[in-house]
Simulated assay, not measured.
Amino acid sequence: MHGSAAAAPAGSCRTAVRATLHCLTGCAVGEVLGMVLGMAFGLHNGATVALSVVLAFAFGYAFTMRGVLRAGLPVRQAVKVALAADSVSILVMELIDNTVMVTVPGALDAGLDSALFYASLAGSLALAFVLTVPVNRWMISRGRGHAVVHAHHGH
């Protein structure tokens, strides 16, 4: 089976886990910041989720750009690399973690001093990580996603 995730080399699983952890870092910073700001400012749940998504994409792209800029890419090329490397991964993570946050009864209404809010957020990010690793593995095995980043610096 040419190109199937099942036929991918064993190292690609480690690469996918590392790529997903990298993506999760940016997503988590943006997601948590967006949720905390939205709740602190009393935004409607929809606005809070939207803010979280925007910030997750912004931080995810920024973290990738930081690495490729350090490797010497010009800004315009770094933006292209970040978009190619992270868009699908961030999208999948955001769909999963925000779906969890919206569907856990009371999670978005629990408040910043609630264990329910933080447990739901931590669980949503953990689930997003687990479900995004195979997506990243599939993309990397096809030379897409974080494979694009690896062409520009020494991983």
Rank of each mutant, 00 (worst) to 15 (best):
44 H>F: 13
44 H>N: 05
44 H>T: 02
45 N>H: 09
45 N>F: 01
45 N>A: 15
45 N>C: 00
45 N>I: 01
46 G>Y: 00
46 G>W: 02
46 G>Q: 02
46 G>F: 02
46 G>D: 04
46 G>C: 07
47 A>P: 00
47 A>S: 10
47 A>R: 09
47 A>E: 10
48 T>V: 11
48 T>F: 13
48 T>P: 02
48 T>Y: 05
50 A>G: 03
50 A>F: 10
50 A>Y: 06
51 L>H: 03
51 L>R: 01
52 S>M: 04
52 S>Y: 06
52 S>D: 13
52 S>N: 01
53 V>Y: 04
54 V>Y: 02
55 L>S: 08
55 L>F: 13
55 L>K: 00
55 L>R: 07
55 L>Q: 00
56 A>D: 07
56 A>V: 03
56 A>T: 05
56 A>Q: 12
58 A>D: 06
58 A>R: 13
58 A>E: 05
59 F>T: 08
59 F>S: 07
59 F>C: 08
59 F>R: 00
60 G>R: 09
60 G>Y: 11
61 Y>D: 06
61 Y>A: 04
61 Y>H: 09
62 A>E: 01
62 A>Y: 04
62 A>N: 00
63 F>P: 00
63 F>C: 05
63 F>E: 07
64 T>E: 08
64 T>A: 12
65 M>D: 12
65 M>W: 04
65 M>S: 06
66 R>M: 12
66 R>P: 01
67 G>I: 04
67 G>Q: 04
67 G>M: 14
67 G>R: 09
67 G>A: 08
68 V>E: 11
68 V>A: 09
68 V>I: 15
69 L>K: 14
70 R>M: 15
70 R>N: 14
71 A>M: 10
71 A>N: 11
71 A>P: 12
72 G>M: 12
72 G>F: 06
72 G>Q: 10
72 G>S: 14
73 L>K: 14
73 L>V: 06
73 L>R: 14
73 L>Y: 06
73 L>A: 06
74 P>A: 12
74 P>Q: 06
74 P>F: 00
75 V>H: 12
75 V>Q: 06
75 V>R: 12
76 R>Q: 11
76 R>K: 08
76 R>E: 10
77 Q>H: 13
77 Q>S: 15
77 Q>D: 15
77 Q>E: 10
77 Q>Y: 06
78 A>G: 11
79 V>Y: 11
80 K>H: 10
80 K>P: 10
81 V>Y: 10
81 V>T: 07
81 V>A: 15
81 V>P: 12
82 A>C: 03
82 A>V: 01
82 A>W: 04
83 L>G: 07
83 L>P: 02
83 L>V: 15
83 L>W: 14
84 A>I: 07
84 A>R: 08
84 A>D: 12
85 A>C: 10
85 A>E: 00
85 A>S: 05
85 A>G: 08
85 A>Y: 01
85 A>K: 00
86 D>V: 01
87 S>G: 02
87 S>K: 00
87 S>N: 03
87 S>T: 15
87 S>F: 11
87 S>P: 00
89 S>Y: 02
89 S>C: 08
89 S>T: 03
89 S>D: 01
89 S>L: 03
90 I>T: 04
91 L>A: 13
91 L>I: 03
91 L>T: 15
